[in-house]
Design a binder for these strands. Structure first.
Length: 275
DNA sequence: CACGATACCTGTAAGC
DNA sequence: TGCTTACAGGTATCGT
């Protein structure tokens, strides 16, 4: 489910009840998700005070006053539920705060993950070491530029879609926002990286910035949803121009949006706008 | 090494 | 109504 904007919105929603609070109790309700929960998760985080929350790529980070950081990934179906009325069978990890709030990490498909790391040297952590630059400016960098993208695409035979989905190129993009950004920038998803025209990198960088900022904005406007137990993510689905719209009209040129499958994943695009 | 295919797991919607 | 199939926001790993 969640790409960068949804993780960003999730982190902000969690911060409203977690930041500055002491974690009174952590309960794991199964062995783990994609991987087992860390053996020292409870020992390191239970009793600690949360000093802040942040995000790197699609990972959410919960910082503590004891030098430990809990790192969560929502995979495809993960979400945090705040003060759920009842515990669902997919609520796999529970956190109780000193104010009595209950946070439940819910993940039906269990493609998500939870890790614990030391605050010191976080950037060198195996989860983060191989990641590309953050698309937007923030604590982890200044944000991607056209030059970054041009360098990453240079000499590559892989399609633009695959290159942007690769977290080593840009950290945090997922299927939806790659489709949207490629459409905005006028680049066909199947075009080989090396064959993308030089003049397209500036529009591509701008499109990535714009679509992510707009999505975060949309998430922010529905942030109150996070205080509800449904844990809705607040995608700005109503604003998708091509994603999930196969057969519908292209909002830019009036052509028809098409779907194609690239490395097992759906790409949506308009051959009138994207070359 | 770069690239594409596949596996992981459950839920939902569509088709028969 | 029930059964089957396709597909879903991600990442790690395995061939070629």
């Amino acid at each position: 489910m969640p790409e960068l904007p949804e993780v960003e919105t999730t982190v902000r929603g969690l911060a409203s009840v977690l930041d500055g609070r002491r974690i009174m109790r952590i309960e794991t309700r199964r062995e783990g998700l994609r991987r087992p929960f860390p053996a020292d998760l409870v020992q390191r985080m239970q009793g600690a005070r949360v000093t802040g929350l942040s995000r790197r790529a699609k990972y959410g980070l919960v910082h503590s006053d004891r030098g430990g950081v809990m790192i969560f990934h929502l995979g495809m179906s993960g979400r945090w539920r705040i003060d759920p009325e009842t515990i669902d069978k997919h609520d796999h990890l529970l956190i109780e705060t000193d104010e009595g709030h209950l946070l439940a990490l819910n993940d039906a498909r269990r493609f998500g993950s939870v890790d614990v790391a030391d605050e010191a040297g976080l950037a060198q952590h195996p989860l983060f070491a191989g990641l590309g630059p953050e698309p937007l400016a923030g604590p982890w960098g200044q944000g991607i530029t056209a030059a970054h993208l041009a360098a990453a695409f240079k000499g590559r035979s892989a399609p633009a879609k695959a290159l942007l989905l690769d977290q080593r190129t840009v950290a945090g993009l997922g299927n939806i926002y790659v489709c949207e950004a490629l459409h905005m920038a006028g680049i066909a998803p199947a075009r080989a990286g090396a064959k993308v025209a030089k003049a397209r990198f500036e529009p591509l960088a701008a499109a990535i910035h714009q679509v992510l900022e707009a999505a975060i904005e949309a998430g922010g406007s529905t942030l109150r949803d996070y205080a509800r137990p449904d844990g809705e993510l607040g995608y700005f689905a109503k604003d998708w121009r091509v994603y999930g719209r196969a057969g519908a009209d292209c909002p830019a040129c009036g052509g028809v949006v098409e779907r194609l499958v690239q490395s097992g994943r759906s790409s949506f695009w308009c051959r009138g706008c994207q070359k």
